Amino acid sequence: MTATTTTASTRVGRLTSSTVSSSKAFRIEPVPIILDIGSTNVRVGYAGNSRPQHLINMDNAIFENEYQYEVKSTKASDASKERNNKKSKTKTESEWYLILSPLIERVFDGLMCKPRRVVCLYSNKRYAPLSFQKAIQQHLWNRGVPAMVELDQLQCLPISQGWKRGLVVQISREEAVCICHADGQLLPYTYQMIPSGGYKNWLQPQTIDGKTEYVLPQRDSKDNKNDDDASMSSLVSAILSCLQSCPRDLRLHVAKNVLFCGDGVFLLPDLPRRAMKRVQDILQNNKHDKEGNDEYNSMVIDINFASVPINVTSLRPLASSLSLISCAPYRADWICWVGASLWATVWNKYSDEETPIPWKYYTLEGGFQ
């Protein structure tokens, strides 16, 4: 009995020592958290899921300038507006930390899990203030997050549907963004942003019992009066400019996969069809002179976008190839979250040498690096 016990204990000791030695090369960790910070809401859940586990709505946009959306009886001077604008854009890391504290607390209270790696998505990572990113990193470190990675929402979008080349139009509350995507990479030189293209520009004031609220307009399918407004024209011009900036050998592939996503598409499902209809009409030059002048019909159409004329002559062969694809089976407002969820699930290897995810680890010298 004694010999048997000794042999068994020795065997267990060898297994334990081998397990400890191999654990350094092979890491067992839970799946990462996907944290998607949008314009007016936050989506959070675990990698591998097909939908966010929690949705946190914010009363105002996180980068909203106070003077722009607050209605007062007296008009503020241009000087005071400029001061408020500068104050809003120059928040320090400490100020952002205080603003984000209740939001991050709700995120982790909803998940009720131990600290794990976080994939953080920004609605517009190019213009997210550095102090804002530092504040989020500090929050995650205080929560015990061992590592994180920061991505652009549109960077992970094609993974949810499997296409490799296309044009993405994202419509949030504050702005609209157009950019081409090719073979897993965003093409930064095709990037177009419309500050006045957010869905808030389509909202209309409605006063009930003395209280004014902004609601979506009740639009008849036969009513096309909203197709000529400034917001729609800017969006159409941005799409054409994005196609113009795309390399010629990619234009045909990009035009076949035009995808609209974002909160604005979920609230205004008819908006993509209306925008692409105008783009196609412009490329086909479907404007006719009342007197039947053929010379007028053959004119080159120029569209003023940011005071710069866009010559669409080279884009006209794409008119018959333009194709609007749907976000189905996912919702337009969380399709980017789904793409990040699939990406993190496939590429989150348990070995640091094998994973292609550029994880940032916290260092005492300068935060996450």
Rank of each mutant, 00 (worst) to 15 (best):
D223E: 10
E174S: 15
K225V: 05
L235C: 10
L216V: 13
I194M: 02
L235Q: 06
A230G: 01
A176E: 02
S233I: 02
Y191L: 14
R219L: 12
S245T: 03
D220E: 11
T207W: 10
I171C: 07
P195C: 02
A182Y: 12
P195R: 00
N226T: 01
Q218L: 06
D228K: 01
D227G: 05
N226H: 09
K164P: 03
A182S: 13
Y214Q: 02
C180E: 08
E175A: 03
L252T: 11
L216M: 15
K164I: 11
D229C: 13
D209H: 14
S234Q: 13
V177K: 09
A230L: 03
S160D: 06
L235G: 07
K222Y: 14
G198C: 06
D209G: 12
D223L: 03
N226C: 04
C180G: 08
V215A: 13
L250V: 08
D220S: 11
A238H: 01
Y189N: 14
Q204C: 14
Y189E: 14
L203W: 05
V236Q: 05
S241W: 00
Q170L: 04
A182K: 10
L167Y: 08
I179C: 03
C178N: 03
P188W: 05
P247R: 06
C178E: 08
C246Q: 02
A182H: 11
R219Q: 14
H181E: 09
Q204K: 13
G198Q: 08
G198R: 04
L243Y: 02
M193P: 03
S160C: 06
V215S: 10
P217Y: 04
Y199N: 05
K225H: 12
C246M: 04
S172A: 15
G198F: 03
K211D: 12
W202T: 13
S245E: 13
D209N: 13
S196T: 15
S233M: 04
D209Y: 14
C178A: 13
E175P: 01
K211P: 07
V168P: 00
N226Q: 05
T212S: 09
R251A: 06
L186N: 05
G210V: 12
M193T: 05
D228R: 00
N226W: 05
A176R: 01
D220G: 10
S196F: 08
N226Y: 09
S196K: 12
L203R: 11
E213C: 07
S234N: 08
Q170N: 10
V169R: 02
E213W: 07
W163Y: 11
L167D: 07
V168H: 04
R219D: 09
K164L: 15
Q204T: 15
Q192L: 08
Y199H: 15
Q170T: 03
G210M: 11
S231F: 02
D209R: 12
R248Q: 11
D249M: 09
S221T: 06
V177E: 00
D209E: 14
E175T: 00
P188T: 01
D220C: 11
V236L: 04
L187Y: 10
A176Y: 00
D220Y: 04
L243Q: 09
E174K: 05
V169W: 04
L167M: 11
V215N: 10
Y199A: 07
Q192K: 09
E213Y: 09
W163K: 07
T190G: 06
R219K: 14
C180R: 02
V168L: 14
L167G: 05
Q244N: 03
V236T: 08
G197K: 04
D183K: 07
S196Y: 05
N201A: 14
